[in-house]
Structures are given as structure tokens and as C-alpha cells.
Design a protein around this nucleic acid. Structure first.
Lengths: 189, 189, 189, 189
DNA sequence: AATGAATGAGCATTCATTCAT
DNA sequence: GATGAATGAATGCTCATTCAT
């Protein structure tokens, strides 16, 4: 048995991945408040395993979305280079952010809920997306395309809220309202 | 005994008011999904009394907010007369709507939740506020102050979402974002 | 005011009758375990009135069926005279008893439930119908048409049980089974 | 740890058995509609455990009686071989069925209640006992010992009803009445 | 006598969380 | 590390019963 620990670690990692995949799927179906048991069942593991890997629900939610959040955050730099203007970059970045939110049923609502159990997720967004967004906003402000009175956090929170969809307010409505909000930001310049 | 029935009715009305007051207070603390028991306890009545007066939770939530909703709806006509322009009227009306929402912790979230148990409340908003808002939007469109592609319902839903406040996104933030959204609507003209 | 008390008594009697009529109707629809409020509502009185007139549910159930029970009891003597044989009289009397039971949804089940709250009803049946049935049984025994080992109470209880109908065991089934039981009684002669 | 899973399964099985035993005991005392809490308390488990093992009340009731029902059903074939005549076999089988019923307080009433929550139990009886009884009835009919107009279901329902015992109508009464009913069936031949 | 508002015990059911194996 | 059986607090809701008017 050359590397028994490594084998075990690999197995543990696989378990962790299975849980994340299952959680992501269940979150789409039932929202981030889905029963833990449903996730465990879908992942083919026991509920205890979920609690071991993700002590709180926020840990799980954060982990599920971390990759996408990181990708989204990294996008800002590239868009700033590629786009004709800072505001164009901001617009495209927001599009990506909205696309992320509206495909996660209940995520917007979860972020807006103020649920103390979701602090980690909140912190994650704060630490990665807010700086990315701030960079774009600063660039816009420097270019005179945007008033300076809007913080990245507030804007993202507002966008998150606008992406809380429902039966009579769907993804397209959300996207349109976010676009309108951005237009409002620009007109303040 | 001149009006024995009147006495009883008066007592019942007082009870009903106590329940409404308690519910309003509890809703602020815990949101509209607060346990019925908590409301009953705060009102100093049994749970049965709550169910007698308000068979469903939506009945209670609707009753708690009906007066303010009606007042808000009635405001639109007056503002349209008094204001310098339709858009100014819309702005002031939205201010009042926002003021209503941000003082009701969790109401925005409740409206956005799509909870089937809150259909009545949803319907109440639809029936009274949406027409009021639509009147203002039409006037704005006629005056060329607004693009015609935004429905009253979508706008109100978006405003409702923007008013979901939290620890780092307070009433002032919400008001600012709503104002920005309105600015965006105008710029579409 | 010659007879103010009489007037009041008459009114009280009318109320009592209204409750009885309503209870009878509700019992047919929902069975004898129907909520008190439903009966009160149908009678157009307050629940307190029901409790005043019929302190226990059994009081109400008994009162509702007393008339029919008395009629049924009185029938035995007449049938004994009119019928060709004591057993023929018994058969016809049982038919009447069954007819009474199967039209009262849930009455058979109530009688068989052993519910201590229905003691009064039980006693009423015991005091009026059992003697009537016993008379018939005795006559049959004297005529050699029946074995002597069946008591009136047991027979009636059995008949009552056989009349507990349901989705796949309807009135006709009940009647057939009662007839078969009687045939069994006779064959024991 | 040779069979860690087996240990857990064994423990779970013991819990399940404890619940079944407790339920059987409580059913005797209070009938099959007894509160779940009472069963849980008697079994020394939490209510959740009951729901885990028996999601619906009918599942629990069915499980409690399944073994005896199966045994009873299997009995018919053997009796048919061993008995002198089909009717003798039927008689002995019915004796066994009655013995089963009268020791389960409230089971007869439950079967007769038409309670939609007990459909499973109803179906269990239908699927196992009715065919067993039908076999016996057919044999009797072929032997000319019985009229053909009685279905197995109706007969068993009637027997079930006759076995609803109470303070003044005990097991012996029930047995006697069932015997009488059978005698009536035979006399129809 | 009649009313019916109010009470609250009682029950079913869900689900987050723990912990022995 | 993984399991999942067990727990029980939490909550919605019903309805018999009381009692002030």
C-alpha cells in the first residue's frame, strides 16, 4: 500500500465533488433552501457526509457557486481590455452576472434574504465579485461614463434583487430591468 | 341593554385590531412568514382567534397592508393633477410606494417569493396598485417622457425587489437604486 | 302579557326543533361525528344554544333519533298481530330497523364504536328497542321458530354492525346480510 | 468490523419491530386511529422514526397485521384439503378470521370506516384474504352447500362488521353471530 | 335564553442535526 | 471518513367547549 492516504484523499475528493454536483442540480430544481436529505439522496451519500464536508448550508451554497463566481470575477479584467469602452465592459460583465443569477433558482432571493446562515456566501460575493465590479465602475467613472455615487456592492445587490424571478416576472423581465438600471446609472454621468 | 350586539361587535373589532397590530409588529421582526403562534402570543389571543378572523395567512397579510395599499393607490390620481409633469408624478408616487415597502421588513421578499399561500396579497397589489401605476405610466408615455415597453406590473415587481433590504443594503440604498431605475426608464424615451 | 313564560317556552321549543332538524340533516351528510359548528350554522343558531339544549353529543344524537326509535319500538306489537307468524313479524320489524339504520350515515358505526360519549344513545336503544325486539324473539321462541340462545340485545347489536356501510358495501349488501343472519337464526330452531 | 452494515440493519430492524409491537399494543387499547405520539412514546422512539419506517398510517397498520393476514390467507388451502366438506373448511377458516379480528380492537371498525387513509390496509385484505375466501366459497357452491349469490368480499365485510365488539357485545357474541350468519348462508343452498 | 367570539389542547407532519457504528 | 437511523423541536391547523354580553 504505497499511498493509502492519497487514495483516501482522492476518494474523499470524489465524494465532495459528487455532493457539489448534486447540490447544484437540486438548487436549480428546488432553490438553495432545498432539504439536505434531497441533496444527499441525489449524491448517493448519507446526510452525515454533507454535514462533514459542509457544516453549514452556506458552506455548501458557497462551494457550489465558487467556481462560477471566480470565473465571473476573472471576466472583468478581460472585458475591460476587449471592450470599446469601460461602460461597454461593465454592460457585458453585468450580463454575465445576471446570466449566472437567473439560472440559479432562488439564489438571488437567498442573497437578499439577509439570512445569517448565508454569511459565507455573502462574504464570498463580497470578496471576489465586488472588487471585480468595482474595477469596472472605477474605469467607467474615470471615463466619465458613470456618476461616482454608486458603490459596487450596492449595484450588485440591486442587480441580485432584480434577478429574483417568479411566475409573472421571468428571466427576460429581470434582464430588461437590469439593463434599465444600468441605463439609469449611465444617465447620472 | 341598548345594543348588546354592538358591544360584542366592538369587542370583536378590538380583537381583530389587536391581531392586526400584533401581526404588523411581528412581520417587521420576523417577516410575513412568522409563525402564527408568535402573532397570537403577541396579540394576547389564542391561535384559534387568528384563524377565525383570518382563515389563511394571506388574509392576514393582506389585511395588515390593505389600508396602506389603498392609500398608495389613491395617491396616483392626486399626484397626476398636482405635479408639474407625469414623470414627476410617477417619481413621487414611486417614492411613496418605496416608503411603504421599506418599512415592511420582508414584504418585498414575500411578494417576490411566489409563495402560493400569498396569492391574495399578490392579487391585492395587482388589483389596486398596478392600475394606479399603469395610469401614471400611460400619462408618461403620452407625454413622451417614457418608453412604452415597460409594463406597470414589471416595474412594480422590480421596485419591490429593489426594496428587499438587508444589513449592508439599507433603505437609502434601496431608494437610490429605485431612483436610478426610474432614471433608466426615462432615458429610454 | 298573559303568558310571557309560555311565549318564551314556545320560542325555546322552536329553537330546539330547529337544532334537531339541522342535526338530522347534517348527520345524514357527515355522520354523527359532524362538527358542532356545522349543525349550529345549519340551524341558524349559535353553538352555545346547542350546548345548552344538548350538553353532550349523545344527548343530541339521541334526541334526533328518539322519535324514529319510538316509532320503531311501537311497531313490534302491531306487526305481531298483523303477521302470519311471529317470525314473519320479526322479519318485517328487522326490515324497519335496518331501514332506519342505513339511512343514518354513521349511526351504526357510532353505536358500535363503544364511544363512552354515546352512552345515552346506547341506553335509549336499550330501553326502547331491545324490549320491543325481545317481545318478538320470545314469540318466535314460543312458536318454535327460533332457538332460544339469542338475546335481543346481541341480535340488534349484530344488525347494527351489519348496517355499517361503505363504498363497497352498500345498503343492499347490508340488507342481504341481515336477512341471511335472520335465516341463520331461524335455522337454529 | 466484519459486518458493520449488518449491525446497523439489525438495530434498525429491532427499532422497526419495537414500533410494530408498540403500535399493535396501542391499537388494542385505542384503536388504529391512535395518535402517532402515543405509539412513539410506547415504543420509546421519536415520532420521526415512525414516519421514517411507516410514512403513512396505513403502512403501519398494514405492517402490524400483514403477517397474520398472510397466515390466515394461506390457511384456506390447507383447510380445504383437511376438512370433511368445503363448508366445514369455510367454517374453520372463518373461525380463524374471526379470531384474528376480535383480538384487534378497532380493526373491524377501521376496515368498515371507509377512511381513505386506510386504503392500503383495505387493499391488503382485498388482495390476500378475499381470494382465499373466494376459493372456499366456490368450493362450497360446487358442492351445493351454499347459494351462489354471496361474494367473498361482502361476506368478509359482514364478518368484519360483526366483529366490532364493545362492552356489551364481546368476542363470544361476535363469534356466535358470525356462526349464525354462516348458518344463514348455508340454509340458502 | 341565545349568542358567537375566544380559547387552547391535540394531532399530523417536516426536517435540521446528531452520533453510534 | 462515511453512513443513515434516530431525534424532537417547530409549526400549521381543527374543533370541542366556555363564558361574558
Amino acid at each position: 500500500m504505497p499511498e493509502p492516504v492519497g487514495v483516501r484523499q482522492a476518494q474523499a475528493e470524489r465524494t465532495r465533488s459528487a455532493v457539489l454536483a448534486a447540490a447544484a442540480a437540486v438548487f436549480v430544481d428546488q432553490g438553495v433552501q432545498a432539504p439536505v436529505r434531497d441533496i444527499a439522496e441525489r449524491a448517493g451519500v448519507g446526510v452525515g457526509t454533507i454535514y462533514r464536508n459542509f457544516p453549514t448550508r452556506a458552506d455548501l451554497v458557497s462551494a457550489v457557486y465558487r467556481h462560477q463566481i471566480d470565473t465571473c470575477a476573472a471576466l472583468s479584467a478581460r472585458l475591460l481590455e476587449e471592450s470599446a469602452s469601460p461602460f461597454a465592459a461593465l454592460t457585458r460583465w453585468v450580463d454575465a452576472f445576471v446570466e449566472f443569477l437567473v439560472t440559479k433558482h432562488g439564489l438571488g432571493a437567498a442573497l437578499g434574504s439577509g439570512d445569517p446562515g448565508l454569511e459565507n456566501l455573502h462574504a464570498l460575493m463580497l470578496d471576489t465579485l465586488v472588487p471585480a465590479c468595482a474595477t469596472l465602475l472605477d474605469a467607467c467613472a474615470d471615463a466619465g461614463e458613470l456618476g461616482a455615487d454608486i458603490t459596487a456592492y450596492t449595484l450588485m445587490r440591486a442587480i441580485g434583487n432584480l434577478c429574483i424571478t417568479g411566475p409573472d416576472y421571468d428571466r427576460d423581465d429581470a434582464k430588461r430591468m437590469v439593463a434599465t438600471l444600468l441605463a439609469g446609472c449611465r444617465s447620472a454621468a
